[in-house]
Amino acid sequence: MLRDITIGQYYPAKSVIHQLDPRVKLMATLIYIISLFSFQGIVGFLLVTAFLILIIRLSKVPFSYMVKGLRAIVILMLITALFNLFLTPGEDVLLQIWKLTITMEGVKNAVFMMVRLVYLIVGTSVMTLTTTPNQLTDGLEKSLMPLRKIHVPVHAIAMMMSIALRFIPILIEETDIIMKAQMARGADFENGNLIKRAKSMVPLLVPLFISAFRRADDLAMAMEARCYVGGEGRTRMKPLSYDKRDYTAYLVLVMFLVLVILARIIL
């Protein structure tokens, strides 16, 4: 049951988006999010929609994969929509029940907020679906390099992320084993109220933590034995390098952002 969890649900395919440098994709996601929350009016909306459809088409990932992520935020979406619907002040009052009023502006806000959230999830999932976790950490490390000037341990953070990714399946398997071992001794993880169930997690978490620390100790020693001394003086087996299509992608991105901003200012 625990083994079904997948992190960084990569969808293998050979598309332009898959082949882009991870740094470009990180940048694209950032620009996309900025434009998503800065567009206004119907033209801006159409621009963002066109961009999203183009990206999805290019990525060759089935649309159903992206919609899967939406299920997790249905409640959040409903709450934001309701708040926007009832609590936006305005002149065009459509309906008034007791102290709650629905205004034209409220309806507009609620609809746009829903659209923004849906686009946010679908758009960012394109990135995680087309980038392997390794590429993602590599891209993150390279893009955050300037932060080293203010003493942010960028390499260490990226290394921690990739090690965490490596150990997630191992620890999940271990949790499964400990759970079965405790169940064999009569532990009950499924019944009882919330507090009781939280308490029953203790005999699961304590051995899991101990074993995780032991693993960390072993791994640190193994890394040291293989001459690991941090990011200084390291070479890369798979160095990131920009290709022609990466520059084109940057150009398209900048154009897109300018268009969205222009649409907001002019219209």
Partner: peptide, 11 residues
């Protein structure tokens, strides 16, 4: 080392 899982770093 002894434990194969605890010395492999990459995915």
């Amino acid at each position: 080392f002894q434990n194969p899982d605890n010395q492999i770093i990459a995915t």
